[in-house]
Amino acid sequence: MSVRNVIASHFVQVAQQQSKQLPPLADDLALLNSGLDSLCFAIIVARLEDELAIDPFAASEDSAFPVTFGEFVRLYENVAA
């Protein structure tokens, strides 16, 4: 499964578990409008670290938190590459 698909499936799973309404995951979806809160993102990032063995936030200290879903995916793709 591609990094993008792994990320998307965790977004969907966490939204479901946390009873959040998740809009379609388009690249330009602003994370602030995704219906997910910081706890949801903390969970997603932890699960992605477990599954992909990468933590892009720890990998580069100055990486700003991505604003859109597309940026979020690229952050992981860049580290995974």
């Binding site: 910081s38 706890l39 993102f41 903390a42 990032v45 932890a46 938190f65």
Partner: peptide
């Protein structure tokens, strides 16, 4: 607690 870049820590 496990370190989290988002919330400082998460529960595991």
């Amino acid at each position: 607690g496990r370190k989290s870049p988002i919330t400082g820590a998460i529960v595991v």
